[in-house]
Design a protein around this nucleic acid. Sequence first.
DNA 1: GATCATAGTCGTCTGCTTGACGATAAACAC
DNA 2: GTGTTTATCGTCAAGCAGACGACTATGATC
Lengths: 252, 252
Amino acid sequence: MPYDPSAFPPFAVTVDLVVLTVRRHSLCALAVRRGEPPFQGRWALPGGFVRADEDLAQAAARELAEETGLRAHDPAVPVQDNGAHLEQLATYGDPKRDPRMRVVSVAHLALAPDLPAPRAGGDASNVRWAPVEELLQRGGYGRDGEPVAPLAFDHAQILSDGVERARSKIEYSSLATAFCPPEFTVGELRRVYEAVWGVALDPRNFHRKVTGTPGFLVPTGGTTTRQGGRPAQLFRAGGATLLNPPMLRPEV
Amino acid sequence: MPYDPSAFPPFAVTVDLVVLTVRRHSLCALAVRRGEPPFQGRWALPGGFVRADEDLAQAAARELAEETGLRAHDPAVPVQDNGAHLEQLATYGDPKRDPRMRVVSVAHLALAPDLPAPRAGGDASNVRWAPVEELLQRGGYGRDGEPVAPLAFDHAQILSDGVERARSKIEYSSLATAFCPPEFTVGELRRVYEAVWGVALDPRNFHRKVTGTPGFLVPTGGTTTRQGGRPAQLFRAGGATLLNPPMLRPEV
DNA sequence: GATCATAGTCGTCTGCTTGACGATAAACAC
DNA sequence: GTGTTTATCGTCAAGCAGACGACTATGATC
C-alpha cells in the first residue's frame, strides 16, 4: 500500500551529542567548531543526520565513534571497559531552531573516562574538551579574557539539560563509574562526584557509603598510589546499577 | 542560502501520548482503536503528525486536547487546575517501527485526574481508559477471557517506558498531585501512590510524610467525607515540586 | 439510639543512615 | 626523621522510616 508523502510535512532528523568527561577536576564537554554556515566558526555540539536505515541509538553511537573513537556500550552490559555510556537525552524540535529547514534533533548523552585528546575528523583545532561552565556562559568572557560566543543553535540548552541529567543520575545510579577508567580508587570516584556536582564531599563518609553499598564496587585486589599518599585499593564497577539509598547531593 | 533537500533523508515526525490516570484504584492509560491500516482494529496510543509550523510540545498539547479535551499545563505553573501535566518522554525511531515509511515518534507523558469519559473524535467505542497491565500483557487474555491483541507499532514499549517514568517520578516530585482533583485529601493522594506503584502504603506513615514535607500540601480549610469514614482535611498542591527526601517506594 | 465499619489523625519506639569529625596508616618529598 | 598527602576505620548525635497502638469522627445497620 503506497503512502502519500504529501500527507505529512518532511523533517530532517539529526542526533546531537552531549559527551561529558572529567578532566583536571572539572566537568568538560566535547565541542566542535562549525566549518560552515549557519553559525560558521561558532562552537557546537557534535552531531549529524540520522541515515535512512539507521536506528537513533545507532546514529548516536556512530557519531560518537567518529568524533572520539569511543565505542558505545551495550546498555545491557555493565560499565567496565573503555566504552562510553550512551543514552538518549531529549528531543528538540522548535520550528526555528535551524534557520535552514525543519530539523528535529534527538540529543544523546555520553559519559566517558578522561581521554587523551579528541582526534576529530582530522583537524584537532576544531574539536576540544571545554569546561561546561565555560560553554554555558553564553556571550560572556573566557578565563583568558577572550570573548566567548554562545554555542550554536539551541546547543546551550541541550548541554544544560545533559549536564543536569548527569548530575541527577549519579545520585541514584552507578553511572559515575562511567567517568572512571576500568579500575579506579574510591578517591578517584569521589573526585568525579565532586567535579560533576561542583561540591566538596567528606572523604570518610563517601568511603563508607560506596564501600558499604552491596554490589556497587568490587575490589580487584590491586592498589595504586597514582594519586599520591597512602596506597589505595583498586575497584571495578560492580553489577549494581541502582544505588539504593541514593548518594545525597549536599545542599548548596 | 538554499539547502539541498536530497542531502538528508526525509522523515515523518509524530507525537504519541501516554496519558495516564487513576480510576477505581488502578492505573489506566488512554487507548484508541485504529481505524485504518496498518494495525487496523488494534488498540494504540493516541498521536499524530507534527505540523510544519508547530513545536513538539505544542503538537503534544494539541493531540491531548483533541483526544481528551484537557488543556496542557504550562510547566512553569504549579499543578492545580484541571489541566494535565505534560512532559516529553522519549523518542522512538527504529527504521522498521512503521511499515509504511520512516517515522520518528516523540512520545510524551501526560498525567490527568480521573476524567468522566474520553470524548474522542466522536466515536466513544474507539477510545477508552484501560488498565495498563491489561494493555501491556501482549497477546494474552483479558479479564473476561477475550483475547487481547498487543498494542500497535512499538506502543507497548512506549507505554511501558511512560509508566516506569511516572512510577519513578512520583518518588521525588509532587507529580502524584497531577492525578488528583484540585482539592484532595491525604487518603486520596495515598491511593494514587498505591495505584501507580501497585503496593499498599501505611496510612499513618504516609500521612506523616506528606503533611510533614514543607510546601508539599497546603490545607484549604475545608473537609470532605466523600471517601466515607471520618471527615478528612482538603489540601491543594503546594509550590514545592521536588520532594526531598523522596517518598520511598517499598521493596517488592 | 447503640453498635459497627470505615477512614483519618496523632503518637511512640526502634533501627538505620547520615553528617561531622577524631584518629590512625602508608606512601612520598625533603 | 619530619612533614605532607591521601586512605581508611571509628564514634557520636540527629533525623527519618517502618511497625504499630490509640483515639476520633463520620455514615450504615440493627
